[in-house]
Simulated scan of single mutants.
Amino acid sequence: MANVLIIGAGGVGQVVAHKCAQVPEVFEKITLASRTKSKCDKIAEMLPRKIDTAQVDADHVGEMVALIEKVKPDMVINVALPYQDLHIMDACLETGVHYLDTANYEPPEEAKFEYKWQWAYHEKFEKAGLMALLGSGFDPGVTSVFTAYAKKHHFDRIKTLDILDCNAGDHGLPFATNFNPEINIREITANGRYWENGEWVTTKPMEEKRVFDFPEGIGEKDIYLLYHEELESLSKHLPEIERARFWMTFSPNYLKHLEVLQNVGMTSIEPIEFQGQEIAPIQFLKALLPDPASLGPLTKGKTCIGNIIRGSKDGQEKIYYVYNICDHQECYKEVQSQAISYTTGVPAMIGAKMMLEGKWMKPGVWNMEQMDPDPFMADLNQYGLPWQETWLDKPFR
């Protein structure tokens, strides 16, 4: 049994705390820490058993080190902001504890989603005998495991990969983001990018659009090509893939609001001076928008996230579709959170469980697709994210 420290008390942190608390045979002791301790205390009151809470500013390595030395966890589960990943990794190295996150490091001053900063820590973690597991959310995370599972069980060679992320939920508000507004909008307004024939192809934001008929009554939705960080790690670790793309659904209403906000400069990350202070417009916008954690009781409908994989087995071409359907209202009943936070938080718990049970434990910095997918896939079915698989008649173009 293990002692874990969870950093971050937003929507995802709430789910991770809930799910860890549900598995006392693995997570014997839990501490939830955030810059605002009252958020941690509020989450702690919801849980079926007692956990500890603490205050910490994850921007400061010294504060993180002091907290880790006090709590003495076996590992840190980082569900704070991506800007803080390297600070938390440094603190884990200094104190000798394992590390897990759900999103790759992103420099505050630039919308740049790359693993290079964290991959550079591989030798440090390896020499320290510590493991860092990167991107143990849904996408990245489960989508990477889906790919590894398909490769292990269904394909000799994967030729194309398309990751499709559909949120068919409706919260009834004019405009809101389903996770941290700053991260969400930076991701969407950046150029699209996909991997093809050994190089990156760049597109303008929202330039590539398709329509896909999602299963279980979700139906046809507009999907747009984005860049997503798992494409970088998958193209590196499965170099046989000829083309890898990521797609996400957006409603016309969402895109209309986003266009207006972009046109007036509210999505910019460049600081401006206002009344004697410097502020990035997107940070001010974040303060105006609804807190994603508040969307739980409002959101109805389902999500569907999965992979369409084309490849060959024994010389025969096949098209495989593996996906998860998640219901917003069912998630709220269980953990008082909507499905976007749920689909990220559950894999974070499972990834930590894999490490603590020794099923995924080796020194260094690793991505999800580098691990054995089978025990993780089994736990998805057991802990709230059951997956389905089918074979398609025609490729996704």
Rank of each mutant, 00 (worst) to 15 (best):
L161H: 12
M64Q: 12
W200S: 08
G96W: 09
F274L: 15
P290H: 07
V365K: 04
R210S: 00
I68S: 02
F246C: 12
T143S: 11
N104C: 15
F113Q: 07
C326N: 09
P239G: 06
A2D: 03
H154K: 12
Q275L: 15
P281K: 05
A244K: 01
N367S: 14
A148L: 07
P271I: 08
Y383V: 02
F376W: 05
Q118C: 11
Y342C: 06
A150I: 06
I183H: 11
N3K: 13
A111H: 09
L32C: 07
E240Q: 12
A348R: 06
F125P: 00
S136M: 14
Y83W: 14
G96Q: 12
C166I: 14
C92K: 02
Y224D: 00
D374R: 04
L356D: 08
E334I: 01
T343L: 15
G219N: 05
G137Q: 00
L231C: 12
A128M: 04
E45N: 10
P140A: 08
L238M: 14
I88N: 00
G62I: 10
V4D: 04
P386S: 01
S38K: 14
I188W: 12
E25I: 04
G10V: 07
C304H: 04
H18T: 07
E208W: 07
H154T: 01
C40M: 02
W391V: 10
E45C: 01
Q84A: 15
S341A: 15
Q329N: 02
L289H: 09
C166Y: 10
E45R: 13
V97Y: 03
E389N: 09
A2Q: 02
W119V: 06
P73G: 02
E63L: 09
M361S: 13
G129E: 07
G10Y: 08
E259Y: 11
E369V: 09
L86Q: 11
K204T: 11
S34A: 15
A111I: 10
V322T: 09
G10W: 04
Y227G: 02
M371Q: 11
H98E: 05
I282Q: 04
F376L: 02
Y121M: 12
K70F: 08
S235H: 03
E220I: 01
K50D: 11
